[in-house]
Design a protein around this nucleic acid. Structure first.
Length: 541
RNA sequence: GUCUCCAUCGUCUAGUGGUUAGGACAUCGGGUUUUCAUCCCGACAACGGGGGUUCAAUUCCCCCUGGAGAUGCCA
Protein backbone atom coordinates (compact mmCIF):
# COMPACT_ATOMS: atom_id res chain seq x y z
CA UNK A 1 0.00 0.00 0.00
CA UNK A 2 2.58 2.56 -0.96
CA UNK A 3 -0.06 5.24 -1.52
CA UNK A 4 -0.58 5.30 2.19
CA UNK A 5 2.84 6.75 2.63
CA UNK A 6 2.06 9.65 0.39
CA UNK A 7 -1.31 10.32 1.82
CA UNK A 8 -0.50 12.31 4.87
CA UNK A 9 -2.68 13.31 7.66
CA UNK A 10 -5.64 11.18 6.90
CA UNK A 11 -7.69 10.33 9.90
CA UNK A 12 -11.11 9.07 10.69
CA UNK A 13 -13.12 6.26 9.27
CA UNK A 14 -15.17 8.23 6.78
CA UNK A 15 -12.04 9.59 5.21
CA UNK A 16 -10.62 6.13 5.01
CA UNK A 17 -13.59 4.73 3.22
CA UNK A 18 -13.57 7.64 0.84
CA UNK A 19 -9.97 6.84 0.06
CA UNK A 20 -10.70 3.24 -0.51
CA UNK A 21 -13.42 4.12 -2.91
CA UNK A 22 -11.09 6.36 -4.87
CA UNK A 23 -8.12 4.05 -4.78
CA UNK A 24 -8.91 2.07 -7.93
CA UNK A 25 -9.18 5.32 -9.83
CA UNK A 26 -5.61 6.30 -9.17
CA UNK A 27 -3.40 3.71 -10.69
CA UNK A 28 -0.56 6.01 -11.49
CA UNK A 29 0.43 8.28 -8.67
CA UNK A 30 1.53 5.74 -6.15
CA UNK A 31 3.45 3.87 -8.78
CA UNK A 32 5.61 6.93 -9.17
CA UNK A 33 6.06 7.13 -5.47
CA UNK A 34 7.06 3.54 -5.27
CA UNK A 35 9.60 3.60 -8.05
CA UNK A 36 10.52 7.09 -9.06
CA UNK A 37 12.08 8.82 -6.12
CA UNK A 38 15.33 7.40 -4.82
CA UNK A 39 17.75 9.52 -6.78
CA UNK A 40 15.31 12.09 -7.91
CA UNK A 41 14.44 13.52 -4.56
CA UNK A 42 17.99 14.53 -3.81
CA UNK A 43 18.26 16.20 -7.17
CA UNK A 44 15.06 18.09 -6.56
CA UNK A 45 16.10 19.18 -3.12
CA UNK A 46 18.95 21.10 -4.64
CA UNK A 47 16.52 23.05 -6.75
CA UNK A 48 13.93 23.59 -4.06
CA UNK A 49 15.67 23.36 -0.72
CA UNK A 50 12.48 23.73 1.22
CA UNK A 51 9.90 21.08 0.90
CA UNK A 52 7.44 22.09 -1.79
CA UNK A 53 3.88 22.72 -0.71
CA UNK A 54 1.39 23.79 -3.35
CA UNK A 55 -2.34 24.04 -3.49
CA UNK A 56 -5.27 24.09 -5.84
CA UNK A 57 -7.85 26.42 -4.39
CA UNK A 58 -10.99 26.58 -6.48
CA UNK A 59 -14.25 28.15 -5.48
CA UNK A 60 -17.17 25.77 -5.82
CA UNK A 61 -19.33 28.08 -7.86
CA UNK A 62 -19.69 26.03 -11.00
CA UNK A 63 -18.59 22.87 -12.71
CA UNK A 64 -14.86 22.30 -12.86
CA UNK A 65 -13.67 23.53 -16.20
CA UNK A 66 -10.66 23.09 -18.41
CA UNK A 67 -8.80 26.12 -17.14
CA UNK A 68 -9.23 25.27 -13.50
CA UNK A 69 -8.31 21.69 -14.01
CA UNK A 70 -5.16 22.65 -15.87
CA UNK A 71 -4.15 24.73 -12.86
CA UNK A 72 -4.91 21.80 -10.56
CA UNK A 73 -2.87 19.46 -12.72
CA UNK A 74 0.16 21.73 -12.91
CA UNK A 75 0.17 22.15 -9.16
CA UNK A 76 -0.25 18.44 -8.68
CA UNK A 77 2.49 17.49 -11.12
CA UNK A 78 4.81 20.07 -9.65
CA UNK A 79 4.25 18.66 -6.18
CA UNK A 80 4.83 15.10 -7.33
CA UNK A 81 7.89 15.95 -9.40
CA UNK A 82 9.47 17.61 -6.39
CA UNK A 83 8.41 15.15 -3.79
CA UNK A 84 6.23 17.87 -2.35
CA UNK A 85 2.76 18.12 -0.91
CA UNK A 86 -0.36 18.85 -2.91
CA UNK A 87 -3.13 20.54 -0.99
CA UNK A 88 -6.73 21.05 -1.93
CA UNK A 89 -8.49 24.02 -0.43
CA UNK A 90 -12.08 24.99 -1.04
CA UNK A 91 -12.61 28.73 -1.33
CA UNK A 92 -16.31 28.97 -0.66
CA UNK A 93 -16.34 32.48 0.69
CA UNK A 94 -18.93 33.61 -1.80
CA UNK A 95 -22.06 32.51 0.00
CA UNK A 96 -24.25 33.56 -2.90
CA UNK A 97 -22.63 31.45 -5.54
CA UNK A 98 -21.08 28.48 -3.78
CA UNK A 99 -23.07 25.28 -4.12
CA UNK A 100 -22.87 21.74 -2.85
CA UNK A 101 -23.31 20.49 -6.36
CA UNK A 102 -20.21 22.34 -7.48
CA UNK A 103 -18.27 21.01 -4.51
CA UNK A 104 -19.30 17.48 -5.37
CA UNK A 105 -18.31 18.09 -8.96
CA UNK A 106 -14.88 19.18 -7.75
CA UNK A 107 -14.39 15.92 -5.88
CA UNK A 108 -15.78 13.84 -8.74
CA UNK A 109 -13.62 15.57 -11.29
CA UNK A 110 -10.38 15.21 -9.38
CA UNK A 111 -11.22 11.58 -8.64
CA UNK A 112 -11.90 10.90 -12.30
CA UNK A 113 -8.65 12.56 -13.27
CA UNK A 114 -6.81 10.58 -10.65
CA UNK A 115 -5.59 13.63 -8.80
CA UNK A 116 -5.15 12.82 -5.14
CA UNK A 117 -4.60 15.55 -2.64
CA UNK A 118 -2.28 15.00 0.29
CA UNK A 119 -4.09 17.47 2.51
CA UNK A 120 -7.54 18.88 2.13
CA UNK A 121 -11.20 18.22 2.63
CA UNK A 122 -12.22 14.59 3.21
CA UNK A 123 -8.67 13.56 4.03
CA UNK A 124 -7.77 16.21 6.58
CA UNK A 125 -4.26 17.28 7.40
CA UNK A 126 -2.29 19.25 9.96
CA UNK A 127 -3.37 22.68 8.71
CA UNK A 128 -7.12 22.19 8.50
CA UNK A 129 -9.86 22.88 8.11
CA UNK A 130 -9.39 23.15 4.37
CA UNK A 131 -12.76 24.61 3.60
CA UNK A 132 -12.73 28.33 4.05
CA UNK A 133 -16.26 28.66 5.36
CA UNK A 134 -15.07 26.51 8.26
CA UNK A 135 -12.27 28.96 8.97
CA UNK A 136 -14.64 31.86 9.39
CA UNK A 137 -13.33 33.08 12.72
CA UNK A 138 -9.72 33.04 11.60
CA UNK A 139 -10.35 35.68 8.97
CA UNK A 140 -12.33 37.80 11.41
CA UNK A 141 -9.49 37.69 13.84
CA UNK A 142 -6.81 38.62 11.34
CA UNK A 143 -8.90 41.34 9.74
CA UNK A 144 -9.50 42.90 13.13
CA UNK A 145 -5.82 42.68 13.85
CA UNK A 146 -5.12 44.67 10.72
CA UNK A 147 -7.62 47.30 11.82
CA UNK A 148 -6.07 47.43 15.26
CA UNK A 149 -2.64 47.84 13.70
CA UNK A 150 -3.86 50.70 11.54
CA UNK A 151 -3.28 48.68 8.35
CA UNK A 152 -6.97 48.46 7.54
CA UNK A 153 -10.14 50.34 8.35
CA UNK A 154 -13.88 49.96 8.51
CA UNK A 155 -15.90 51.29 5.63
CA UNK A 156 -19.58 52.09 5.91
CA UNK A 157 -20.30 52.98 2.33
CA UNK A 158 -23.41 51.40 0.89
CA UNK A 159 -23.28 49.20 -2.20
CA UNK A 160 -25.53 51.78 -3.84
CA UNK A 161 -23.05 54.57 -3.27
CA UNK A 162 -20.24 52.45 -4.66
CA UNK A 163 -22.34 51.54 -7.66
CA UNK A 164 -23.14 55.12 -8.61
CA UNK A 165 -19.55 56.09 -7.92
CA UNK A 166 -18.36 53.46 -10.34
CA UNK A 167 -20.88 54.46 -12.99
CA UNK A 168 -19.76 58.06 -12.77
CA UNK A 169 -16.13 57.08 -13.06
CA UNK A 170 -16.72 54.92 -16.08
CA UNK A 171 -18.89 57.54 -17.76
CA UNK A 172 -16.30 60.23 -17.12
CA UNK A 173 -13.48 57.88 -18.14
CA UNK A 174 -11.91 59.09 -14.96
CA UNK A 175 -8.32 58.29 -14.22
CA UNK A 176 -9.46 57.27 -10.79
CA UNK A 177 -11.41 54.04 -11.08
CA UNK A 178 -12.59 52.25 -7.99
CA UNK A 179 -13.28 53.14 -4.40
CA UNK A 180 -12.67 56.77 -3.50
CA UNK A 181 -11.39 55.94 -0.02
CA UNK A 182 -14.21 57.89 1.50
CA UNK A 183 -14.12 56.10 4.85
CA UNK A 184 -10.36 55.97 5.11
CA UNK A 185 -10.22 59.36 6.79
CA UNK A 186 -13.43 59.27 8.73
CA UNK A 187 -13.20 61.24 11.94
CA UNK A 188 -13.43 59.44 15.25
CA UNK A 189 -16.81 60.95 16.06
CA UNK A 190 -18.27 60.10 12.65
CA UNK A 191 -17.07 56.58 12.95
CA UNK A 192 -18.48 56.29 16.42
CA UNK A 193 -21.84 57.58 15.28
CA UNK A 194 -22.00 55.09 12.43
CA UNK A 195 -21.11 52.27 14.78
CA UNK A 196 -23.76 53.37 17.27
CA UNK A 197 -26.34 53.41 14.50
CA UNK A 198 -25.39 49.83 13.69
CA UNK A 199 -24.42 50.69 10.14
CA UNK A 200 -23.17 47.62 8.32
CA UNK A 201 -19.52 47.84 7.43
CA UNK A 202 -16.70 46.11 5.63
CA UNK A 203 -13.01 46.12 6.35
CA UNK A 204 -10.75 47.60 3.72
CA UNK A 205 -6.99 47.48 3.37
CA UNK A 206 -5.11 50.76 3.59
CA UNK A 207 -3.12 50.59 0.40
CA UNK A 208 -0.16 52.97 0.62
CA UNK A 209 -0.80 56.14 -1.34
CA UNK A 210 2.77 56.37 -2.56
CA UNK A 211 5.58 54.10 -3.56
CA UNK A 212 5.39 50.94 -5.60
CA UNK A 213 5.23 47.25 -4.95
CA UNK A 214 7.06 44.47 -6.72
CA UNK A 215 6.67 40.76 -6.68
CA UNK A 216 8.76 38.15 -8.38
CA UNK A 217 7.27 35.65 -10.75
CA UNK A 218 9.24 32.55 -11.65
CA UNK A 219 8.25 32.87 -15.30
CA UNK A 220 7.65 36.56 -15.73
CA UNK A 221 10.39 37.99 -13.57
CA UNK A 222 9.75 41.08 -11.50
CA UNK A 223 6.37 42.69 -11.83
CA UNK A 224 5.95 46.14 -10.40
CA UNK A 225 2.94 48.35 -9.87
CA UNK A 226 2.71 51.78 -8.42
CA UNK A 227 0.72 51.62 -5.24
CA UNK A 228 -1.75 54.18 -6.50
CA UNK A 229 -2.46 51.83 -9.41
CA UNK A 230 -3.15 48.97 -7.06
CA UNK A 231 -6.82 48.51 -6.39
CA UNK A 232 -7.72 51.40 -4.06
CA UNK A 233 -8.32 49.94 -0.64
CA UNK A 234 -9.95 46.66 -1.55
CA UNK A 235 -12.44 44.98 0.74
CA UNK A 236 -10.88 42.31 2.92
CA UNK A 237 -13.86 41.38 5.02
CA UNK A 238 -17.34 41.62 3.57
CA UNK A 239 -20.35 42.87 5.45
CA UNK A 240 -21.56 39.30 5.89
CA UNK A 241 -18.38 38.63 7.83
CA UNK A 242 -16.83 36.48 5.14
CA UNK A 243 -13.42 37.31 3.77
CA UNK A 244 -12.78 38.21 0.15
CA UNK A 245 -10.44 36.14 -1.93
CA UNK A 246 -7.50 38.40 -1.21
CA UNK A 247 -7.67 38.12 2.54
CA UNK A 248 -8.57 34.45 2.80
CA UNK A 249 -6.03 33.49 0.21
CA UNK A 250 -3.12 35.23 1.87
CA UNK A 251 -3.97 34.05 5.36
CA UNK A 252 -4.49 30.45 4.30
CA UNK A 253 -1.46 30.25 2.07
CA UNK A 254 0.60 31.51 4.94
CA UNK A 255 -0.93 29.30 7.59
CA UNK A 256 -0.80 26.26 5.37
CA UNK A 257 2.85 26.82 4.59
CA UNK A 258 2.36 27.16 0.85
CA UNK A 259 5.73 27.60 -0.84
CA UNK A 260 4.70 28.15 -4.46
CA UNK A 261 1.59 29.74 -5.78
CA UNK A 262 0.70 28.52 -9.22
CA UNK A 263 -2.45 30.20 -10.48
CA UNK A 264 -3.81 31.67 -13.68
CA UNK A 265 -2.35 34.84 -15.13
CA UNK A 266 -5.59 36.67 -14.51
CA UNK A 267 -4.23 37.07 -10.99
CA UNK A 268 -1.13 38.96 -11.99
CA UNK A 269 -2.68 42.37 -11.46
CA UNK A 270 -3.49 41.55 -7.86
CA UNK A 271 -0.02 40.20 -7.15
CA UNK A 272 1.24 43.47 -5.67
CA UNK A 273 -1.89 43.74 -3.57
CA UNK A 274 -1.15 40.35 -2.08
CA UNK A 275 2.40 41.40 -1.36
CA UNK A 276 1.03 44.42 0.46
CA UNK A 277 -1.09 42.09 2.54
CA UNK A 278 1.85 39.88 3.39
CA UNK A 279 3.73 42.99 4.43
CA UNK A 280 0.82 44.22 6.52
CA UNK A 281 0.85 40.91 8.38
CA UNK A 282 4.62 40.81 8.52
CA UNK A 283 4.77 37.52 6.66
CA UNK A 284 7.12 36.20 4.01
CA UNK A 285 5.33 35.81 0.67
CA UNK A 286 5.63 32.53 -1.24
CA UNK A 287 7.05 32.11 -4.74
CA UNK A 288 4.74 32.99 -7.58
CA UNK A 289 4.28 31.30 -10.90
CA UNK A 290 1.44 32.62 -13.00
CA UNK A 291 0.13 30.17 -15.53
CA UNK A 292 -0.85 31.20 -19.05
CA UNK A 293 -4.57 31.23 -19.59
CA UNK A 294 -6.56 28.87 -21.74
CA UNK A 295 -8.50 30.62 -24.47
CA UNK A 296 -11.24 29.73 -26.91
CA UNK A 297 -10.88 29.70 -30.66
CA UNK A 298 -11.56 33.44 -30.83
CA UNK A 299 -8.79 34.25 -28.40
CA UNK A 300 -11.16 35.14 -25.60
CA UNK A 301 -11.10 33.48 -22.24
CA UNK A 302 -12.46 29.96 -22.72
CA UNK A 303 -16.14 29.84 -21.86
CA UNK A 304 -19.30 27.92 -22.57
CA UNK A 305 -19.96 29.59 -25.87
CA UNK A 306 -16.83 27.90 -27.21
CA UNK A 307 -18.41 24.51 -26.60
CA UNK A 308 -17.93 22.16 -23.72
CA UNK A 309 -15.62 23.45 -21.08
CA UNK A 310 -16.62 21.50 -18.02
CA UNK A 311 -14.75 18.33 -17.35
CA UNK A 312 -18.04 16.66 -16.67
CA UNK A 313 -19.09 17.30 -20.27
CA UNK A 314 -15.89 15.82 -21.62
CA UNK A 315 -16.28 12.84 -19.39
CA UNK A 316 -19.82 12.21 -20.52
CA UNK A 317 -18.96 12.48 -24.17
CA UNK A 318 -16.38 9.81 -23.68
CA UNK A 319 -13.01 11.45 -23.37
CA UNK A 320 -10.49 9.44 -21.41
CA UNK A 321 -8.92 11.11 -18.42
CA UNK A 322 -5.41 10.32 -19.61
CA UNK A 323 -6.14 11.96 -22.96
CA UNK A 324 -7.62 15.05 -21.40
CA UNK A 325 -4.74 15.29 -18.96
CA UNK A 326 -2.18 14.82 -21.70
CA UNK A 327 -3.70 17.38 -24.00
CA UNK A 328 -4.47 19.97 -21.38
CA UNK A 329 -0.93 19.68 -20.09
CA UNK A 330 0.42 20.43 -23.52
CA UNK A 331 -1.27 23.77 -23.72
CA UNK A 332 1.02 25.88 -21.64
CA UNK A 333 3.69 23.29 -21.04
CA UNK A 334 6.01 21.29 -23.23
CA UNK A 335 8.78 18.85 -22.67
CA UNK A 336 11.11 19.32 -25.63
CA UNK A 337 8.77 20.24 -28.45
CA UNK A 338 9.09 16.77 -29.94
CA UNK A 339 7.63 14.35 -27.48
CA UNK A 340 3.97 14.86 -26.86
CA UNK A 341 2.69 11.69 -25.29
CA UNK A 342 2.84 11.65 -21.55
CA UNK A 343 0.93 9.40 -19.26
CA UNK A 344 -0.06 10.93 -15.95
CA UNK A 345 2.68 9.15 -14.04
CA UNK A 346 5.26 10.49 -16.49
CA UNK A 347 4.00 14.00 -15.98
CA UNK A 348 4.33 13.41 -12.25
CA UNK A 349 7.98 12.84 -12.88
CA UNK A 350 8.90 15.17 -15.72
CA UNK A 351 6.90 18.28 -15.02
CA UNK A 352 8.93 21.40 -14.47
CA UNK A 353 8.19 25.08 -14.03
CA UNK A 354 10.75 26.30 -16.54
CA UNK A 355 8.95 24.65 -19.42
CA UNK A 356 5.74 26.51 -18.84
CA UNK A 357 5.07 29.03 -21.56
CA UNK A 358 4.19 32.63 -20.93
CA UNK A 359 1.74 33.19 -23.73
CA UNK A 360 -1.87 32.12 -23.48
CA UNK A 361 -2.93 29.07 -25.47
CA UNK A 362 -6.00 28.30 -27.48
CA UNK A 363 -7.88 25.15 -26.61
CA UNK A 364 -8.02 23.00 -29.74
CA UNK A 365 -10.89 20.52 -29.60
CA UNK A 366 -9.60 18.71 -32.65
CA UNK A 367 -6.25 18.00 -31.15
CA UNK A 368 -7.97 16.71 -28.03
CA UNK A 369 -9.95 14.37 -30.28
CA UNK A 370 -6.73 13.14 -31.79
CA UNK A 371 -5.22 12.44 -28.39
CA UNK A 372 -8.37 10.70 -27.31
CA UNK A 373 -8.38 8.46 -30.36
CA UNK A 374 -4.77 7.57 -29.74
CA UNK A 375 -5.47 6.59 -26.16
CA UNK A 376 -8.58 4.66 -27.13
CA UNK A 377 -6.58 2.63 -29.62
CA UNK A 378 -4.10 1.76 -26.93
CA UNK A 379 -6.74 0.06 -24.82
CA UNK A 380 -7.19 -3.66 -24.88
CA UNK A 381 -10.51 -4.90 -26.22
CA UNK A 382 -11.66 -5.82 -22.74
CA UNK A 383 -10.69 -2.48 -21.24
CA UNK A 384 -12.43 -0.63 -24.01
CA UNK A 385 -15.51 -2.80 -23.74
CA UNK A 386 -15.71 -1.97 -20.05
CA UNK A 387 -15.50 1.73 -20.81
CA UNK A 388 -18.09 1.37 -23.54
CA UNK A 389 -20.67 -0.49 -21.47
CA UNK A 390 -22.19 2.60 -19.84
CA UNK A 391 -22.85 4.08 -23.26
CA UNK A 392 -24.51 0.92 -24.46
CA UNK A 393 -26.69 0.89 -21.41
CA UNK A 394 -27.57 4.54 -21.60
CA UNK A 395 -28.60 4.22 -25.23
CA UNK A 396 -30.76 1.23 -24.41
CA UNK A 397 -28.69 -1.20 -26.45
CA UNK A 398 -27.96 -3.18 -23.36
CA UNK A 399 -29.74 -3.87 -20.11
CA UNK A 400 -28.23 -2.28 -17.01
CA UNK A 401 -27.84 -5.74 -15.50
CA UNK A 402 -26.21 -7.18 -18.57
CA UNK A 403 -24.38 -10.44 -17.95
CA UNK A 404 -21.15 -11.95 -19.24
CA UNK A 405 -22.66 -12.90 -22.61
CA UNK A 406 -23.64 -9.34 -23.33
CA UNK A 407 -20.23 -8.15 -22.22
CA UNK A 408 -18.60 -10.70 -24.47
CA UNK A 409 -20.64 -9.35 -27.34
CA UNK A 410 -19.30 -5.87 -26.69
CA UNK A 411 -15.78 -7.23 -26.54
CA UNK A 412 -16.31 -8.90 -29.88
CA UNK A 413 -17.40 -5.70 -31.57
CA UNK A 414 -14.62 -3.59 -30.13
CA UNK A 415 -12.11 -4.51 -32.84
CA UNK A 416 -14.54 -3.21 -35.45
CA UNK A 417 -14.91 0.19 -33.89
CA UNK A 418 -11.71 0.76 -31.99
CA UNK A 419 -9.87 2.68 -34.64
CA UNK A 420 -12.97 4.62 -35.59
CA UNK A 421 -13.84 6.06 -32.19
CA UNK A 422 -12.89 9.61 -31.39
CA UNK A 423 -14.86 9.57 -28.17
CA UNK A 424 -16.48 6.66 -26.40
CA UNK A 425 -19.91 8.09 -27.10
CA UNK A 426 -19.37 7.53 -30.83
CA UNK A 427 -20.08 3.89 -30.18
CA UNK A 428 -23.80 4.58 -30.06
CA UNK A 429 -24.24 5.82 -33.60
CA UNK A 430 -21.62 3.44 -34.85
CA UNK A 431 -23.36 0.30 -33.65
CA UNK A 432 -26.98 1.35 -33.63
CA UNK A 433 -27.72 -0.92 -36.61
CA UNK A 434 -26.72 -3.92 -34.50
CA UNK A 435 -29.10 -3.21 -31.67
CA UNK A 436 -32.13 -1.53 -33.16
CA UNK A 437 -34.21 -1.87 -36.28
CA UNK A 438 -32.97 0.57 -38.82
CA UNK A 439 -35.18 2.63 -41.04
CA UNK A 440 -35.69 1.41 -44.56
CA UNK A 441 -33.11 3.15 -46.72
CA UNK A 442 -34.33 5.48 -49.45
CA UNK A 443 -33.81 4.01 -52.92
CA UNK A 444 -31.26 6.62 -53.93
CA UNK A 445 -29.16 5.83 -50.86
CA UNK A 446 -28.79 2.30 -52.09
CA UNK A 447 -27.34 3.39 -55.38
CA UNK A 448 -23.60 3.83 -55.65
CA UNK A 449 -22.37 6.69 -57.76
CA UNK A 450 -22.96 6.20 -61.47
CA UNK A 451 -24.85 2.97 -61.06
CA UNK A 452 -28.46 2.48 -62.05
CA UNK A 453 -31.18 0.79 -60.05
CA UNK A 454 -31.51 -2.23 -62.30
CA UNK A 455 -27.81 -3.11 -62.05
CA UNK A 456 -27.77 -2.51 -58.34
CA UNK A 457 -30.83 -4.66 -57.92
CA UNK A 458 -29.20 -7.48 -59.77
CA UNK A 459 -26.03 -7.12 -57.69
CA UNK A 460 -28.04 -7.27 -54.50
CA UNK A 461 -29.96 -10.32 -55.63
CA UNK A 462 -26.80 -12.22 -56.37
CA UNK A 463 -25.20 -10.98 -53.17
CA UNK A 464 -28.19 -12.21 -51.20
CA UNK A 465 -27.59 -15.73 -52.42
CA UNK A 466 -23.94 -15.62 -51.43
CA UNK A 467 -24.55 -14.06 -48.05
CA UNK A 468 -27.36 -16.43 -47.24
CA UNK A 469 -24.91 -19.25 -47.67
CA UNK A 470 -21.87 -17.60 -46.11
CA UNK A 471 -22.16 -19.43 -42.81
CA UNK A 472 -18.97 -21.36 -42.22
CA UNK A 473 -17.07 -19.70 -45.03
CA UNK A 474 -13.90 -17.70 -44.61
CA UNK A 475 -14.25 -13.96 -45.06
CA UNK A 476 -11.77 -14.07 -47.88
CA UNK A 477 -13.88 -16.60 -49.72
CA UNK A 478 -17.05 -14.58 -49.31
CA UNK A 479 -15.24 -11.47 -50.44
CA UNK A 480 -14.04 -13.29 -53.49
CA UNK A 481 -17.54 -14.42 -54.38
CA UNK A 482 -18.93 -10.91 -53.93
CA UNK A 483 -16.07 -9.62 -56.03
CA UNK A 484 -17.06 -12.04 -58.74
CA UNK A 485 -20.47 -10.36 -58.94
CA UNK A 486 -18.82 -7.07 -59.71
CA UNK A 487 -16.83 -8.69 -62.44
CA UNK A 488 -19.84 -10.45 -63.95
CA UNK A 489 -21.87 -7.25 -64.02
CA UNK A 490 -18.94 -5.15 -65.13
CA UNK A 491 -19.14 -2.79 -62.19
CA UNK A 492 -16.76 -1.65 -59.49
CA UNK A 493 -16.24 -3.59 -56.33
CA UNK A 494 -17.85 -0.74 -54.48
CA UNK A 495 -20.92 -1.17 -56.66
CA UNK A 496 -21.74 -4.38 -54.89
CA UNK A 497 -20.40 -3.68 -51.45
CA UNK A 498 -22.02 -0.31 -50.97
CA UNK A 499 -25.63 -1.40 -51.57
CA UNK A 500 -25.15 -4.26 -49.16
CA UNK A 501 -23.64 -1.91 -46.62
CA UNK A 502 -26.49 0.54 -46.86
CA UNK A 503 -29.08 -2.23 -46.79
CA UNK A 504 -27.57 -3.86 -43.73
CA UNK A 505 -26.26 -0.93 -41.69
CA UNK A 506 -28.43 1.87 -42.97
CA UNK A 507 -25.39 3.99 -43.72
CA UNK A 508 -22.73 4.46 -46.34
CA UNK A 509 -20.21 4.56 -43.55
CA UNK A 510 -19.86 1.59 -41.27
CA UNK A 511 -17.45 -0.87 -39.73
CA UNK A 512 -16.14 -3.59 -42.04
CA UNK A 513 -19.06 -5.22 -43.79
CA UNK A 514 -18.59 -8.92 -43.22
CA UNK A 515 -17.74 -8.47 -39.56
CA UNK A 516 -20.81 -6.32 -39.16
CA UNK A 517 -22.93 -8.99 -40.80
CA UNK A 518 -21.61 -11.71 -38.55
CA UNK A 519 -22.33 -9.58 -35.50
CA UNK A 520 -25.79 -8.72 -36.73
CA UNK A 521 -26.64 -12.33 -37.47
CA UNK A 522 -27.58 -13.90 -40.77
CA UNK A 523 -31.33 -13.80 -40.22
CA UNK A 524 -31.51 -10.06 -39.74
CA UNK A 525 -29.01 -9.46 -42.49
CA UNK A 526 -31.00 -11.45 -44.98
CA UNK A 527 -34.20 -9.73 -43.97
CA UNK A 528 -32.62 -6.31 -44.49
CA UNK A 529 -31.21 -7.36 -47.83
CA UNK A 530 -34.61 -8.61 -48.94
CA UNK A 531 -36.17 -5.37 -47.89
CA UNK A 532 -33.62 -3.42 -49.89
CA UNK A 533 -34.26 -5.63 -52.89
CA UNK A 534 -37.96 -4.95 -52.78
CA UNK A 535 -37.30 -1.23 -52.48
CA UNK A 536 -35.22 -1.34 -55.62
CA UNK A 537 -37.76 -3.50 -57.36
CA UNK A 538 -40.33 -0.77 -56.94
CA UNK A 539 -37.82 1.64 -58.39
CA UNK A 540 -37.20 -0.44 -61.45
CA UNK A 541 -40.81 -1.38 -62.09
C1' G B 1 -10.00 55.49 -19.44
C1' U B 2 -5.86 53.47 -16.42
C1' C B 3 -2.57 49.58 -15.11
C1' U B 4 -0.21 44.77 -15.97
C1' C B 5 1.25 40.80 -18.94
C1' C B 6 2.09 38.50 -23.60
C1' A B 7 3.76 38.02 -29.16
C1' U B 8 7.59 31.63 -34.00
C1' C B 9 3.22 28.08 -39.33
C1' G B 10 -4.45 28.47 -38.93
C1' U B 11 -3.61 25.92 -33.68
C1' C B 12 -0.17 23.83 -29.67
C1' U B 13 4.91 24.40 -29.53
C1' A B 14 10.89 23.53 -30.11
C1' G B 15 14.90 26.55 -30.97
C1' U B 16 19.52 29.66 -31.57
C1' G B 17 23.62 36.09 -31.83
C1' G B 18 25.40 32.75 -37.75
C1' U B 19 19.89 26.71 -38.51
C1' U B 20 17.50 24.38 -45.12
C1' A B 21 13.74 27.87 -38.34
C1' G B 22 12.33 21.43 -36.07
C1' G B 23 7.88 18.52 -34.31
C1' A B 24 2.54 17.69 -33.64
C1' C B 25 -2.79 18.82 -34.73
C1' A B 26 -5.65 20.77 -38.62
C1' U B 27 -5.81 21.34 -44.02
C1' C B 28 -4.58 19.48 -48.94
C1' G B 29 -2.48 15.50 -52.12
C1' G B 30 -0.90 10.25 -52.73
C1' G B 31 -0.64 4.96 -51.15
C1' U B 32 -3.02 0.65 -48.45
C1' U B 33 -8.43 -0.71 -47.95
C1' U B 34 -15.26 -3.26 -49.63
C1' U B 35 -17.01 2.49 -47.22
C1' C B 36 -15.24 5.22 -43.19
C1' A B 37 -11.38 5.08 -39.93
C1' U B 38 -6.53 3.40 -38.85
C1' C B 39 -1.68 3.12 -40.94
C1' C B 40 2.32 4.93 -44.39
C1' C B 41 4.31 8.81 -47.71
C1' G B 42 4.25 13.85 -49.33
C1' A B 43 2.79 19.12 -49.67
C1' C B 44 1.26 23.82 -47.88
C1' A B 45 2.39 26.94 -43.85
C1' A B 46 5.59 31.09 -39.06
C1' C B 47 9.77 34.44 -36.53
C1' G B 48 3.67 41.31 -36.35
C1' G B 49 5.99 46.43 -37.84
C1' G B 50 9.83 50.19 -37.09
C1' G B 51 14.20 51.68 -34.89
C1' G B 52 18.69 50.54 -32.49
C1' U B 53 23.20 47.18 -30.37
C1' U B 54 26.32 43.92 -33.42
C1' C B 55 30.53 41.75 -38.54
C1' A B 56 25.76 39.23 -37.98
C1' A B 57 19.54 39.43 -35.24
C1' U B 58 13.83 35.39 -35.15
C1' U B 59 17.10 35.54 -30.80
C1' C B 60 19.39 41.40 -26.85
C1' C B 61 17.24 46.76 -25.99
C1' C B 62 13.46 50.65 -27.16
C1' C B 63 8.98 52.29 -29.56
C1' C B 64 4.56 51.02 -32.15
C1' U B 65 0.85 47.66 -33.28
C1' G B 66 -1.96 43.59 -31.96
C1' G B 67 -4.00 40.29 -28.24
C1' A B 68 -5.32 39.21 -23.33
C1' G B 69 -6.21 40.19 -18.25
C1' A B 70 -7.31 43.40 -14.18
C1' U B 71 -9.81 47.61 -12.61
C1' G B 72 -16.32 43.96 -7.59
C1' C B 73 -18.72 43.30 -0.46
C1' C B 74 -16.61 37.08 -7.68
C1' A B 75 -12.87 34.16 -7.37
Amino acid sequence: MPWNVRWRGCAGTTEQSFLHRLLPLFPFCYKTVATGYPYRSRLQEERFPMSVRVRYAPSPTGMQHIGGVRTALFNYFFARANNGTFILRVEDTDQERSTDEALQDLYDTLAWLGVKWDEGPLVGGPHGPYIQSERFSIYQEYAEKLVADGKAYRCYCTPQRLETLREEQVAAKSKQQGYDRHCRNLGESERHALEQAGTPSVIRLKVPLEGKTTFHDVLMGDITRRNDDVSPDPVLLKSDGFPTYHLANVIDDHMMGITHIMRAQEWIPSGPLHILLYEAFGWEPPMYCHLPMVMGKDGQKLSKRHGSTSVRDFREKGYLPEALINYVSMVGWSYDGEREFFRPDELCELFSLEKISKAPGIFDYKKLDWYNGMYIRQKSDEELATLLMPYMVRSGFMAPDAGPQEFARIVSLVPLVKERLKVLGDIVDMTRFLFTDIEAPAPEELLPKKQDAATTLEALRRALVIITGMQGSEDAVVEERLGAIAEELGIKLNGVFMPIRVAVTGSQVSPPLLDSIRLLGLDKTVARLERAISILQNEVA
